[in-house]
């Protein structure tokens, strides 16, 4: 299988004289067609990894590639869709306008833009509110706009940063259904989450991070068999969590 995300010995340090090490030589590969869960407690280095992949942060050393292209090249992001943890969109635009804006940025042909907007708005069930400004949307609707913009270019790789955080059970179910559907279409999905049950349900493989280091990686079933425990128990053990007596 072709590697869609390839990370080798990635090290990221923040700060000057007393640098904080966010990633300590991470090696990770995500293959085409996989749904990959990226787990870890807060401060584990998940968001830093995504920031490097998306070009928001620079690596101190090591290498990261998307589709075989260095992540520092903007063209590496041509075939990806990204959903941030919280929705950050121009609230004075309507859903339709924001999708048209991002479609233009991706260089989608004018003739194809409207049909693509129709398709993604239907997929996220926002067709009825397409002409309303985003500032009038509920949180769940804003999250669905986020998903729509992440899908506007029909990406081969979707990077989702805690896609269900803050959503109600219906919203979570809808996001899960969309991930499953994308998986069925052969797309690669790389997502971080704190919802271990959700990860167990939808992921082919997972990686567990703690303090900038990769603690475990593999298929969920293999990890559970190897450790003889549930994913939650494995997670807690690997991050060194001890419950108060």
């Amino acid at each position: 299988m072709a590697a869609i995300i390839q990370i080798n010995k990635l090290r990221v340090e923040y700060g000057g004289a007393m640098p904080k090490v966010a990633l300590k030589g991470l090696d990770l590969t995500v293959n085409a067609g996989e749904v990959f869960g990226y787990l870890g407690p807060n401060g584990a280095g998940k968001t830093t990894t995504m920031n490097v992949l998306l070009g928001f942060a620079n690596a101190t050393s090591g290498m990261a590639q998307l589709f075989g292209v260095d992540v520092r090249q903007p063209i590496a992001r041509q075939r990806i869709g990204y959903l941030p943890e919280l929705t950050y969109y121009y609230k004075f635009l309507t859903a339709e306008e924001i999708l048209r804006f991002y479609a233009k940025i991706f260089g989608i042909a004018k003739s194809a833009i409207e049909s693509r907007i129709d398709a993604v708005l239907k997929l996220v069930e926002l067709d009825h509110a397409r002409k309303r400004q985003i500032k009038t949307y509920s949180k769940g609707m804003q999250q669905r706009v986020g998903l729509a913009q992440a899908l506007i270019n029909n990406p081969d790789l979707l990077i989702l940063d805690e896609p269900t955080s803050g959503l109600d059970p219906i919203g979570r179910m809808q996001v899960r259904a969309i991930i499953q559907r994308l998986k069925g279409e052969g797309k690669t999905v790389f997502f971080s989450s704190h919802e271990l049950g959700e990860v167990e349900t939808v992921c082919d493989r997972v990686a567990i991070m703690c303090e900038g280091e990769l603690k475990a990686e593999g298929k969920v079933a293999d990890l559970m068999r190897e450790h003889g425990a549930s994913l939650e128990q494995i997670f807690l053990k690997l991050i060194g969590y001890r419950a108060a007596a």
């Binding site: 941030p84 950050y88 991002y102 940025i105 986020g146």
Partner: peptide
């Protein structure tokens, strides 16, 4: 407002 993140996550 962090709108820069979805924007820079595109080929921009």
């Amino acid at each position: 407002q962090r709108t820069i993140f979805p924007l820079l996550a595109k080929p921009v």
